[in-house]
């Protein structure tokens, strides 16, 4: 039985994962933090915290709040910057068998390209996830992910700057996610991941003020799952590259739904906070499910729920 998938089949050496279960950016740190608790080498891949050219302080606190079956966050891309990442983190990853992708965010197209160039040389980096979808920063981030022209421009610049596999992470805060997806694939993305968080807010009725320091934040967790699933279903029909499904996945059943909607792989985010072993449990669960169903290759179920004429 095979759980292996390749997220950049058009590229040498590709982005081969031993299973389709990844952990999402911003919810697994640099991979080292959970190492004592989770057998991280079993994971399909790890996506590290969103990384910018220079270190960033992030947003004022409070930065998180719980909502029904969901989590609002406005971390604001606090991170150590790409140079410290290459110096301090990538050498650790180079010794691991699990592939690590670096999630990157720039304030301009040039900055995205610059970060990609710096990563291109770094041992230990298996690929780049281009974050054109962070809702929690003023410049860059989501502003370029809501515009097909800008999103394509950033993708092309990153594509130009590196030979690493390039996956572009889309924001759901758009009217027509398919048009963005098509533009980004046209500009050379090897794969797409979707979705990032939905902009939302919460008000503290005692202070009569927004609870989050940054006023708004991004909603994640099971609350967003049906919308994320619908978007994956739409995008998977429209583009020829692998799509990675993200949003509210908590267990094997929800992971299978995304695979059947056309996702070649999935990412677990918020659910890791609830149970650090969620991703590992899903890997086991997928194996068991395939065995029960008598299916020998996970790729056979990818897109099983898509319209047959698609």
């Amino acid at each position: 039985m095979s759980l292996a998938v390749d997220l950049a089949p058009g590229r040498e050496p590709g982005l081969r994962l031993r299973n389709p279960v990844m952990v999402a950016s911003g919810t697994f740190g640099y991979g080292t933090e959970y190492a004592g608790l989770v057998d991280i080498q079993r994971l399909g891949a790890i996506v590290c915290k969103g990384t910018t050219l220079r270190p960033r302080r992030g947003n004022p606190t409070p930065r998180t709040a719980e909502t029904p079956a969901g989590l609002l966050n406005s971390i604001g891309l606090q991170n150590i910057g790409v140079r410290a990442l290459v110096r301090e983190k990538a050498p650790i990853w180079a010794k691991w068998s699990v592939p690590v992708l670096v999630n990157i965010a720039g304030e301009s197209t040039e900055e995205y390209a610059e970060i990609a160039r710096i990563l291109d040389e770094a041992p230990g980096v298996a690929g780049i996830e281009v974050n054109v979808s962070c809702p929690n920063v003023a410049a860059g981030g989501m502003t370029c992910g809501v515009d097909p022209v800008l999103a394509a421009e950033v993708t092309a610049a990153v594509r130009e700057a590196t030979t690493l596999p390039v996956m572009v992470k889309l924001t759901p805060n758009v009217t027509d996610i398919v048009s963005i997806a098509e533009a980004v694939v046209g500009a050379g993305a090897d794969a797409l991941s979707l979705v990032n968080t939905f902009v939302g807010m919460i008000i503290d009725i005692n202070t009569k003020k927004p609870l989050l320091g940054a006023v708004t934040g991004g909603l994640s967790g099971p609350a967003i799952r049906p919308i994320a699933l619908r978007m994956v279903y739409e995008v998977a029909q429209a583009v020829p590259v692998p799509v990675v499904g993200v949003g509210g996945i908590t267990d094997t059943v929800s992971a299978l739904q995304f695979l059947m909607a056309g996702a070649a792989a999935i990412q677990v985010g918020t659910a890791t906070f609830v149970d650090p072993n969620t991703a590992a449990d899903i890997i086991d669960g997928l194996g068991d499910w395939l065995e029960r169903e008598g299916i020998s290759d996970i790729r056979e179920i990818v897109g099983a729920a898509l319209p047959k004429d698609a």
């Binding site: 919810t27 740190g29 933090e33 992030g58 998180t64 989590l71 966050n73 606090q78 890791t272």
Partner: peptide, 15 residues
């Protein structure tokens, strides 16, 4: 502080 992960990964609880 408000926490989400408790494990040092989410950066919710900074001071």
């Amino acid at each position: 502080a408000r926490m989400a992960c408790g494990m040092g990964v989410c950066l919710s609880c900074v001071v």
